[in-house]
Simulated assay, not measured.
Amino acid sequence: MRKLSMALLAGVALVGCGVDPQSENQEIISNLVKAGFPADDIMVVDDAVYVGRDAHVTLEASREMLQPGEGSTEQYRTNNLVGTGVTKICINPTATFNSYSNLSAGLDMAIANYNGRGLRITMARGPTTGCTANITATTMSGAGGSAGFPSGGYPYGTINIGTGLQSYSVDVNEHVITHELGHAIGFRHSDYYNRSISCGGSATNEGDAGVGAILIPGTPSSAVVGGSIMNSCFRSTESGEWTSSDITALDYLY
């Protein structure tokens, strides 16, 4: 089955005062190659190193990719989560996003995934009223997605969904959008310590990525293919629904 990557936006570049960005980038690239990333999948844009076109990699993260994975448990979160002051997150699709029928339908189903859990936060499709936080749903090229992590008690403000997903089922669109919204409220990849579990290829470790990788209590050990919506890569047969471990993790946090 075809496996596709959902890259995640890891944040801004961490370049210290007096440090030569070129020298840092050379080390990052070298570390990525050692970690198993193909050289032609690595690029430098505006003095920042990316893999898979839209996944930014810091020097710290690249070094941690070379360290053996310490965990094998399935669900992880970032240091920052959405604060209690946020009760209604409004997802606001752009006009271009809305023009893709499967993306648009997938968004409604992803929102329903979260609202079906009876969490302390609800989600709503914008524009609407009563929003205590907002996320823009916009498009990108390819058949995947990207997002970032919470900051200051608020969810990350943008999810990017690939227009290539229009050719996949609505369930796959639901899966990818649910996944990216998961990052926006603080979920790491369930197989962050070994992306080959869901993506195949060489074992790669995303490391701490500067945002933390904290085990969520009660989740099962060892990530498996199809075991979580938060796996790094997805299949063309995804149902778009939560797994039991996803529900445990989501209920624990929110």
Rank of each mutant, 00 (worst) to 15 (best):
Arg2Thr: 11
Arg2Glu: 12
Lys3Glu: 05
Ser5Tyr: 15
Met6His: 07
Leu8Asp: 08
Leu9Gly: 15
Leu9Arg: 14
Val12Met: 10
Ala13Thr: 10
Val19Asp: 12
Val19Thr: 14
Pro21Phe: 10
Gln22Thr: 14
Gln22Trp: 12
Glu24Tyr: 15
Glu24Met: 15
Asn25Phe: 12
Gln26Cys: 10
Gln26Thr: 14
Glu27Ala: 15
Glu27Ser: 12
Glu27Tyr: 12
Ile29Met: 15
Ile29Asp: 02
Lys34Glu: 03
Gly36Ala: 06
Phe37Val: 12
Pro38Trp: 08
Pro38Asn: 06
Ala39Gln: 13
Asp41Gln: 14
Ile42Pro: 08
Ile42Tyr: 01
Asp46Asn: 13
Val49Asn: 03
Val49Thr: 13
Val49Gly: 02
Leu59Gly: 00
Leu59Gln: 02
Glu60Tyr: 11
Glu60Ser: 14
Ala61Thr: 06
Arg63Ser: 09
Glu64Leu: 06
Met65Gln: 12
Leu66Thr: 10
Leu66Lys: 06
Leu66Cys: 09
Glu70Ser: 14
Gly71Cys: 08
Gly71Val: 11
Ser72His: 12
Glu74Trp: 00
Thr78Phe: 10
Leu81Asn: 00
Gly83Asn: 08
Val86Gln: 06
Thr87Ala: 12
Thr87His: 14
Lys88His: 14
Ile91Phe: 05
Pro93Asp: 10
Thr94Tyr: 14
Ala95Tyr: 09
Ala95Cys: 01
Asn98Tyr: 03
Ser99Glu: 08
Ser99Val: 08
Asn102Thr: 13
Gly106Cys: 07
Met109Gly: 07
Ala110Glu: 01
Ile111Gly: 09
Arg117Cys: 04
Gly118Asn: 13
Gly118His: 10
Gly118Glu: 07
Leu119Cys: 04
Leu119Ile: 04
Leu119Pro: 00
Leu119Gly: 00
Arg120Lys: 12
Ile121Phe: 11
Thr122Arg: 10
Arg125Thr: 05
Gly126Ile: 13
Pro127Asn: 13
Pro127Glu: 06
Pro127Ser: 13
Thr132Gln: 02
Ile135Ala: 11
Ile135Glu: 05
Thr138Arg: 01
Thr138Met: 03
Thr139Gln: 04
Met140Ile: 14
Ser141Cys: 10
Gly142Lys: 06
Gly142Phe: 01
Gly144Lys: 05
Ser146Glu: 00
Gly148Pro: 02
Gly148Leu: 04
Gly148Trp: 07
Phe149Arg: 01
Gly152Ser: 04
Gly152Asp: 02
Gly153Trp: 08
Pro155Gly: 06
Tyr156Pro: 03
Gly157Asp: 09
Ile161Trp: 01
Gly162Val: 11
Gly164Gln: 04
Gln166Leu: 04
Ser167Ala: 15
Ser169Cys: 03
Val170Phe: 01
Val170Gly: 03
Val172Arg: 05
Val172Phe: 02
Glu174Tyr: 01
Val176Cys: 07
Val176Ile: 11
Thr178Cys: 05
His179Trp: 05
Glu180Phe: 11
Ile185Arg: 02
Tyr193Phe: 12
Arg195Asp: 09
Ser196Thr: 04
Ser196Gly: 05
Gly200Ser: 03
Gly201Phe: 06
Gly201Leu: 02
Ser202Met: 09
Ala203Cys: 08
Ala203Lys: 06
Gly207Tyr: 01
Gly218Val: 03
Gly218Ala: 03
Pro220Ser: 13
Ser221Tyr: 09
Ser221Gly: 15
Ala223Phe: 00
Ala223Pro: 12
Gly226Met: 11
Gly226Thr: 08
Met230Gln: 10
Phe234Lys: 03
Arg235Ala: 13
Thr243Val: 07
Leu250Trp: 10
Asp251Lys: 12
Tyr252His: 09
Tyr252Arg: 03
